[in-house]
Design a protein around this nucleic acid. Structure first.
Lengths: 164, 164
DNA sequence: TCAAAGTGGTTGTAAAATGCAATCACTAGT
DNA sequence: ACTAGTGATTGCATTTTACAACCACTTTGA
């Protein structure tokens, strides 16, 4: 696909500005989901398997994710690339807007509020942790529980396993 | 439309996470376009009139824009609401991602680089200027040319009138 | 006064994307 | 051999999108 224009905002929107792409990234980043089935069953919005398949393919083609190439029938893991990790500030900005201008479930609001309260350092720390987990980067020496660990409790309480 | 989930990111994506909605907001925020025809002819991506009509309607319904209600055939002006103005950080994040991970025309890259170099203060200043222009807020006392004025030269050089 | 140009759209129509359920080829475990 | 789980693909109906033409109305200007 060639871009409709040379605008950076347009380029970003074309690469990941699709309802489901954002939600897939959200679940990978904040929900630590890396397998097809996890993403399929874990999504609170209930994505269809063909749509998930298509979006994963497009995100891989766009250089935002990579996929372990395994044989058919084997569990394949998806990883964020550096480009994928750098979508975190976009997700953060979207979440903050939604927090301010839309209602939402208290649990998820709590999570977003936690992130906003911690601000940019939290985002940086989260991105570093994603680099360790997805890119195999050397851990950055930090004390205490990581950002995902801190979020996990709030996230699982709200999204958890029950994908009604 | 009721939301697919109580997630803030999902809420934001549902309200404005559509290819054209983002581009309309971009042109209103950075291109200072406020009329149907300006948006129609000014868009470098070439939006169709029915799509523009539909997106404006949806953005108004979502509380992101307001429309002066005038008689049919009269020039109606669209304004950003405070919710609309607060999408600026999202557009900024999208633009920065596109700048880093996609190629684009040099002119538009220059514009995005200018913004990024000036950082958060630029965004704040831009949002204040939008409040003055769209909400009729009292001008914030600042010296020198405003952020839109600074951007205008670069923007018009690239996007200008030629909507090929 | 009266045509011409401009206003924000609407109306076809065809192409593309989406959503849903069923199915598939394959692997791993027992 | 059987069963459950893997990441998808396939049909099919519905919805959304894109493109061009057109519309009702107002404003402009000679």
């Amino acid at each position: 696909m060639e871009p409709r224009s040379g605008c950076a905002i347009n380029a970003a929107v074309e690469a990941l500005g699709d309802h489901w792409s954002f939600l897939v990234l959200r679940d990978m980043v904040f929900g630590d989901r890396r397998y097809f089935r996890e993403l399929l069953n874990g999504s609170i919005e209930g994505i269809a398997s063909n749509i998930l398949s298509d979006r994963l393919k497009k995100l891989v083609a766009a250089g935002i994710l990579t996929k372990e190439d395994v044989l058919r029938g084997q569990r394949a893991r998806y990883s964020l690339t550096e480009a994928g990790i750098q979508t975190v500030p976009i997700l953060f900005a979207l979440g903050n807007w939604g927090l301010d201008w839309r209602t939402g479930t208290p649990e998820l609001r709590t999570r977003q509020e936690l992130m906003r309260a911690e601000g940019t350092p939290f985002i940086e720390e989260l991105m570093d942790e994603l680099r360790v987990r997805h890119l195999g980067a050397a851990p950055v020496g930090r004390e205490g529980p990581g950002p995902l660990e801190r979020l996990e409790a709030a996230y699982r309480a709200a999204v958890g396993g029950e994908a009604a």
